[in-house]
Design a protein around this nucleic acid. Structure first.
Lengths: 159, 159
DNA sequence: TGCGGGTTGTTATATAGCATTACAATTTCC
DNA sequence: GGAAATTGTAATGCTATATAACAACCCGCA
């Protein structure tokens, strides 16, 4: 059972403000504020997917394979921003669970084409629902307009 | 020499859009957009501090120790959101480089009080300058007003 | 047409950054 | 005064990731 924790205090990895402590002018640094918000995002993701052994990165991989059937592992690693060996690991993981499969690529005997299996597709649909619902909860403190603004500004940053 | 890379393609860890690839509706997910922006932030941090062997987390630790002289390691771990053993590692690292020191706490014989050394203080000042300048460059695609809005919205999220 | 250089998936290996657990010394609370 | 909690620490392990090397393969070019 991995889910049993003593739960004294917040679990490591989540960032909670400690009362009566000065944070200097960390809040002036965009990078720091970004990081805090992003960790909260991971937190929300994990809450939304408890019981399912999926991670943000693996979820992203599924979405991308779904959106680009026949994708090559190299291309996937590029999209994920990892080394090729990293894509291997993800794809192995997906294949082991019957969520994706490698098929021969006629045009290139070195590479595989990646595809979601029906099982993978339905799992992804379910995940999409959860993640979307969670996004709403996560951003509940923001109005719809604020949420849109936020996404827009973040998009400009990462562009 | 750690800095030598073949530099074919972007370095792993940074996220760059792959042309001609569909990202599904990943951009609808606040978590994903956040993550991308945050990775860009790390990237910017690393660029701003090349040659100096510091990380965002270690920088944060320095700021917090500076702002709370005599801080205890437990308190630091709380502020960093890591386990106590993690704070140990950071403090060891800082101490090894003469940037911080542990002093006896009169009021509690179990704990140490953490302090930046003069060397640590000057290093932090220098880092602050670099990070601040970098923040400006990083957020250059945003107007001052947009930057303020962004920080405000992120703050609401992570609150 | 064959050859050299780049690409692809793969394996092996290493590393960084964490968490978890256990422990002794100490403090705090009843 | 004794039980329970806290502190720093060490030992251990896990996860994600990078790097390097390799064989099979593709492609452009002499």
């Amino acid at each position: 059972m991995k889910t049993n924790r003593k739960a004294r205090g917040p679990r490591p990895g989540s960032i909670v403000r400690v009362a009566g402590l000065s944070y200097g002018d960390l809040d002036e640094h965009l990078g720091y504020v970004l990081r805090r918000a992003q960790l909260a995002g991971f937190d929300a993701f994990h809450r939304a997917t408890t019981g399912i052994d999926v991670s943000p990165a693996r979820y992203t991989a599924m979405v991308i394979v779904r959106a680009n059937p026949g994708l090559t592992q190299s291309a996937l690693s590029g999209a994920l921003g990892t080394a090729r060996s990293g894509a291997m690991t993800v794809v192995d993981w997906l294949e082991d669970r019957g969520l994706a499969e490698r098929r021969n690529l006629p045009r290139d005997a070195r590479a595989w084409g990646l595809y979601l299996t029906p099982r993978g597709e339905s799992m992804l649909r379910s995940l999409n629902r959860k993640v979307r619902a969670n996004d709403a909860r996560f951003a509940a403190r923001l109005t719809a307009a604020e949420r849109a603004t936020l996404k827009m500004l973040l998009g400009k940053l990462a562009g």
